[in-house]
Computed example of a mutant assay.
Amino acid sequence: MKRVIGICGIAIMGLMLSGCQTFNTEHGYGIVDYGNDNSDALKNKMRQLLIEKNTVVSIIQFGDAHTSTGYFIETLRHLMQQRFGNAGIGWMTPIAINRSAYQWDIINSQNTLQTDFPMGGYIAKPKHNGAEIKVVLNSGQPRVGLWNVHLMLKSKTTEPISILDTDGKADLSYSLMNIEPNQWRVMNTVTTMPFSIRADSQVELGGLWLQKHNQPGVIVSAVGMKDAQLVAWNQWSPQWLSELQMTNSDLVILEYGTNEALDKNLDAQEYRTNLVTSIQRIRKQLPNAVILLLSPPDLMIQNQQKGTCVEHVPISYEIVKSTQIAVAKAENLLYWDWQKAMGGRCNIAKWYSEGLAQKDLIHLTPLGYEISAEILYQSLLQYWGIAK
């Protein structure tokens, strides 16, 4: 049985979504539940966290440029942690780390033939022995207290790696002697923030998991790649999937579809197969997680000077959305219609006129992403049965 949530008169970032409606499956800003078996467990866990503050809920979002910009996920993280407590950041790729003096090189999986990449598609490598890379929290994260740090590492040799606290003292020093060469491994420590990672030139850093030590609350992670399509899930190495399991995520959000919608030659059957395969792989690693599909935001193309609104909608946009909904129903997922949250078809033009979308009518401005994230946040609260 599907459950539909409505949102009424929400004030967002100085704007007002006026009126009050209950939206059904076809017309809704809310979360639509197509019978997910884990939904009730997650609802109970969120309520328990809010009242008893004795557990950790992990949320991870995978997506394309809308995710990789950071504005959407940072807003969602802020809102979640403000309400439910701050349990940390979660998964971070090396690209998100402050590279002190650029002593480390960042390698992108899209620019190399190497296929053994960790989750997120980036690797950091020291330029010389003893190079340091500094991990610094942004201004929105408290800098006191201890953090659990899990590092994804690989080395060709037995060269050591160290974690250094703010005083330059080693919290952890690992010899890689007992580690099989060229195999990704997770190494764990507890340290203060900020800290530095010092390693020799044969070490590779694939990413970090950052969680506050013995702290209840919410963790919100993001793995976004600018030109990503869902087909990438079928090309991920087994390493990606093992790291996904390590996140122990309660809610997995899939934000893909924009690049597919812009593909004039999109094969609908192939897209559906990729979507189903990806969902099955996620469920194999995280059998207790809830999976939420996001539709692409409203889009328009500008290669015609004239024409109706419909003629400016990407040719594959409706294929993507109809396929997503069909798969959500068949696989018992949650679904959130981002286009309808923006007001419906062709409202991207209005968002642009209000400074919420970019000129390409595909990407949003920072404020546009922040507003979108708050609408999703409010939708989740309504779905979980938690008062605003």
Results as ranks from 00 to 15, higher is better:
162 S>T: 07
156 K>G: 14
166 T>E: 07
173 S>E: 12
81 Q>H: 02
142 P>C: 11
87 A>T: 04
97 I>M: 04
203 V>P: 00
123 I>A: 02
130 G>M: 02
155 S>L: 02
156 K>W: 03
148 N>E: 09
194 P>H: 04
189 T>I: 10
189 T>E: 05
164 L>E: 03
209 W>I: 15
98 N>M: 04
209 W>H: 09
106 I>E: 02
122 Y>P: 11
164 L>H: 04
144 V>E: 15
140 G>Y: 14
124 A>E: 07
160 P>F: 06
180 E>A: 13
210 L>G: 01
151 L>M: 13
141 Q>V: 09
149 V>R: 04
98 N>F: 11
164 L>C: 01
150 H>C: 15
85 G>H: 12
188 N>Y: 10
120 G>V: 15
139 S>L: 14
86 N>C: 04
175 S>H: 13
171 D>V: 15
114 Q>F: 09
166 T>M: 02
111 N>M: 14
190 V>W: 04
121 G>V: 13
150 H>N: 14
132 E>F: 07
184 W>Q: 12
173 S>V: 15
110 Q>F: 04
213 H>Y: 14
99 R>H: 13
86 N>H: 00
177 M>C: 09
144 V>C: 09
85 G>E: 10
97 I>A: 01
106 I>P: 00
149 V>Q: 06
107 I>S: 02
181 P>Q: 03
172 L>F: 14
146 L>F: 08
91 W>A: 09
188 N>P: 10
179 I>K: 03
99 R>K: 10
209 W>Q: 11
184 W>F: 03
205 L>W: 04
138 N>V: 07
162 S>A: 09
197 I>D: 03
122 Y>C: 12
151 L>K: 01
121 G>P: 07
108 N>H: 06
120 G>L: 11
109 S>L: 05
99 R>N: 14
190 V>I: 11
219 I>N: 00
151 L>A: 14
161 I>P: 02
184 W>K: 12
80 M>T: 13
83 R>P: 13
158 T>D: 14
112 T>C: 01
171 D>M: 10
211 Q>S: 12
101 A>M: 08
140 G>D: 15
160 P>V: 08
174 Y>A: 14
148 N>I: 14
192 T>A: 05
172 L>T: 12
117 F>M: 12
133 I>W: 01
129 N>M: 05
152 M>G: 03
112 T>D: 06
144 V>W: 12
140 G>H: 11
95 I>H: 00
156 K>S: 11
192 T>W: 00
154 K>Q: 04
164 L>Y: 05
113 L>M: 10
152 M>F: 13
210 L>A: 07
129 N>Y: 06
168 G>F: 05
80 M>V: 08
141 Q>A: 12
90 G>I: 10
104 W>D: 11
158 T>L: 05
172 L>C: 11
139 S>P: 06
130 G>D: 06
117 F>S: 11
106 I>A: 00
166 T>R: 06
106 I>D: 01
98 N>H: 09
89 I>C: 01
